[in-house]
Design a protein around this nucleic acid. Structure first.
Lengths: 330, 330
DNA sequence: CTGAAAGCGCTAACAT
DNA sequence: ATGTTAGCGCTTTCAG
């Protein structure tokens, strides 16, 4: 970590011009027909003194920062934290770094952050869109900044995205609950949210229920709700449900709390998303597990492709979920 | 997000030189005695067209990137994810952005990443040091790059750091377990690790045990251990412990798993760190909660101070923990 | 009070 | 096959 070496230092030491060094460094030695001897000598010297080009100057010149902006709802949320972890790993493999922020559900903050990242000449965006982000994302696309959404997408903007197969997962989970012939009343607890992942989970549930010619029971909840204890109780007990599908792990945990505090017995149930708790709880909890690693992998793969070649076609990737059957649904 | 406006565009439109615009933009209008009329006209125009200076050019010139490097053990770990969340928030308030990576426990990767971040002219580093990172951190300090450690520190390098008061927290927790006069055998489960946070937790435990003139029972575990079920069982049941302190939440969860799988009853216990599970578990779990928000706040505060004024004295901040007494310890 | 111009470190078209 | 040179967009010294 001695003082920074410049390309000019290399050139001087090697008795060649800066250009030659630059070409060699950027793998254009062949193309520019630099002699192999010179090339190797430069490479060896560069290695020896540990020269690293100044990224800033490089970026200023080339317009590429090798920086990806990651905007998630909340990096403190284990799901997003895990995606972030794998995204970073994948990005690193491709020589990119990640600059992140949590946008909560604040559209203004999201817009501001996108602006700020844009000013930093981020090479691409990875975003979990908040509800009213369409105009901003549309602008990004018009500005030709490679952008990819995940977890959910925007119905009114054509973009790249990677999402889980929420519809099928919810459908399969509901089917699983219906395999037990005693289960006549199977409910869904979801969020007040128009986001696609919630919508798809609900539709998957609905389809399975419809196919069995049963009545659907759907309860939506606001997570900030003080009343969720009562709501859970009334929904589950009041309807005498035989089984419930929860569309997020938070909802499941919230229901477990309610059952404890309001002292009612949980029916059979399944939760979306994994949680450390689920294996351990008594009974262990059946869950719909998203393939986080694959999601991260696809995100970076598609995004990098978009960055490296303009006018790639839009990619929309749907990653299957896995139903992990445990005791709570049996 | 129209096409980027340059400072020269502003200058041309205003009929002044680039210099003048630059001065005004950088708040040096007064100092350079630019007429108020011109200043205001420029400011108004800049506002109107939404001009934002190119950060890259600015950085190349000034050497400041307004980027902070965050190197944590594992961003997927809820503790670090939460710290990361608050760090980002605090950084944002101060006009900084965060570029992160997980370094696992891989010293080489850590070194490489630090190198890479250094090449990006990161303004400062926030690091959870892995065991053999001392040489690298020392180099960073010699290179005058503002650096601050957290969660644990290095005993052989004098650095800024922010850590929890692990010693006192462990001491208090152990004391709490000893308040019950039936608790004669109080054990500690910790990790094979020389990191300061683990050492301090052990010392706090030891001191409390010593003060009561009791025997200490300490079990260290490797987390990758397949045998942890047996080890937990043998340690807790074999020693007929009355109570246990776990020095990480992972260890607690691992013990709960063991108790389930090996079918033994957990004695009274306390866990370091919070976890969603802890409130909910039966019995609810007493835990030592680190003040993550305060840790993040201090980290950024100290680091920014170091960045803005060279030769600030080294700061070492110790943040108190809170013992959240729940059912498992009563 | 304001402007011209040098230069941050690098890339790449254009010479030679 | 290699070197000269003009920028990338901005800050800041030095002149006026």
């Amino acid at each position: 970590m001695k003082k920074r070496i410049l390309i000019s230092d290399i050139a001087r030491a090697m008795g060649v011009s800066i250009t030659t060094v630059s070409f060699v460094l950027n793998g254009k030695a062949e193309e520019k027909r630099i002699s192999e001897e010179v090339t190797n000598r430069i490479l060896a010297y560069v290695e020896k003194v540990g020269y690293k080009p100044n990224q800033l100057a490089k970026s200023l010149r080339s317009g590429e920062t090798k920086l990806l902006g990651l905007l998630v709802e909340d990096i403190g949320n284990p799901f997003f934290a895990n995606v972030a972890k794998h995204i970073e790993k994948e990005a690193y493999k491709n020589d990119y770094h990640i600059i992140y922020c949590s946008i909560a559900n604040d559209d203004n903050r999201a817009k501001e952050l996108i602006d700020l990242f844009y000013d930093r000449h981020i090479d691409g965006f990875i975003i979990t869109p908040t509800d009213n982000l369409s105009p901003t994302v549309r602008m990004l696309i018009q500005s030709k900044i490679p952008t990819i959404l995940f977890d959910r997408y925007l119905t009114d903007v054509e973009t790249n995205y990677v999402v889980s197969d929420n519809f099928k997962a919810a459908y399969d989970a509901t089917k699983h609950l219906l395999e037990n012939k005693n289960h006549q009343k199977v409910g869904l607890v979801s969020l007040y949210s128009n986001q696609t992942q919630m919508r798809d989970r609900m539709e998957g549930y609905r389809k399975a229920i419809d196919e069995s010619r049963l009545q659907n029971f759907i309860q939506k909840i606001s997570l900030d709700e003080d009343m969720s204890n009562d709501i859970m109780h009334d929904f589950i007990v009041g309807n005498q449900l035989d089984a419930v599908l929860f569309s997020t792990n938070y909802l499941t945990i919230s229901a477990l709390k309610s059952s404890k505090e309001k002292n009612f017995t949980m029916p059979k149930f399944i939760s979306f998303d994994e949680h450390t708790l689920f294996n351990l709880y008594e009974p262990s909890i059946t869950s719909i597990s998203q393939n986080i690693k694959e999601i991260a992998h696809q995100l970076i793969k598609v995004l990098i492709k978009q960055i490296s070649s303009k006018d790639e076609p839009i990619r929309q990737v749907v990653v299957p979920c896995e139903l992990k059957i445990r005791a709570s649904s049996l």
